[in-house]
Computed example of a mutant assay.
Amino acid sequence: MREKLRVAAYAVCVRDGRLLLARSPAPGGTFEWVLPGGGMDHGEDPHDTVVRELEEETGYHIEVTGLLGIDSVRHVLPGERLRAPVDHHGVRIVYEGRIAGGELRDEVGGSTDTAAWFDLADVPALTRVPLIDTALRLWRERPADGRASVTSGT
């Protein structure tokens, strides 16, 4: 089995009770909402990654205001064509960010297609990746060890 490690950085940006999210294509031609952010380039600092990725996906420039925590997930993904399955380990660094400039816009030619603000109360009804729930727990709870409490169903 092949092994793959992916390190990524994401931002929780809440303004006036609304959360900034980006929409990403999902398998089967559907879409799901994701936190703005993404994979680190080799040699890139995670802080720089989240600033770059958020600007690419939303048009906003952010000020990173805190480190909320680090989430680690592991999945075995099926192999494609004649390739072996992949043991995928994702390390997601979750920051808190404040919008410091720029204007909301959609990403063109990237991993997302649109960005939008959602009332925090409306987020549970969205088709979304589990990281959003984890990141919001980190944002609400501010655990000293940087790990979100585990709840059933996530």
Rank of each mutant, 00 (worst) to 15 (best):
E3N: 14
E3T: 09
K4S: 15
L5P: 03
V7K: 11
A8M: 08
A9I: 05
A11N: 03
C13F: 12
C13G: 02
R15C: 12
R15K: 15
G17C: 09
R18Y: 07
R18K: 15
L19S: 11
L19F: 11
L20Q: 14
R23Q: 11
R23Y: 00
P25M: 04
G28Q: 03
G28K: 10
G28P: 04
F31P: 01
F31E: 10
E32S: 14
E32I: 08
W33Q: 02
L35Q: 05
P36V: 12
G37D: 02
G38N: 01
G39I: 02
D41C: 07
G43L: 08
D48C: 01
D48T: 06
V51G: 06
R52A: 07
E53R: 12
L54E: 10
L54G: 00
E55G: 06
E56T: 10
E56S: 11
E56V: 07
T58P: 03
T58N: 07
H61M: 10
E63D: 15
T65Y: 13
L68A: 12
L68F: 00
R74G: 13
H75A: 07
L77G: 05
L77Y: 01
L77D: 04
P78T: 10
G79M: 05
R81S: 13
L82N: 03
L82T: 08
L82F: 04
R83N: 11
A84D: 14
P85R: 11
V86P: 11
V86S: 13
D87N: 14
H89M: 04
R92M: 13
E96G: 06
G97E: 02
G97Q: 08
E103G: 08
E103R: 15
R105F: 10
S111R: 15
D113V: 12
T114I: 05
A115N: 10
A115V: 12
A115I: 14
W117H: 13
W117M: 14
L120Y: 09
A121T: 11
P124S: 04
A125S: 14
A125H: 08
A125P: 00
L126Y: 11
R128T: 01
V129W: 02
I132N: 06
T134R: 10
A135E: 03
L136E: 00
L138V: 08
L138N: 04
R140P: 00
E141K: 05
R142G: 09
R142M: 11
D145V: 05
G146V: 05
R147Y: 03
A148D: 02
A148Q: 02
A148G: 05
V150I: 10
V150Y: 03
T151N: 01
S152M: 06
G153M: 01
G153A: 06
T154S: 03
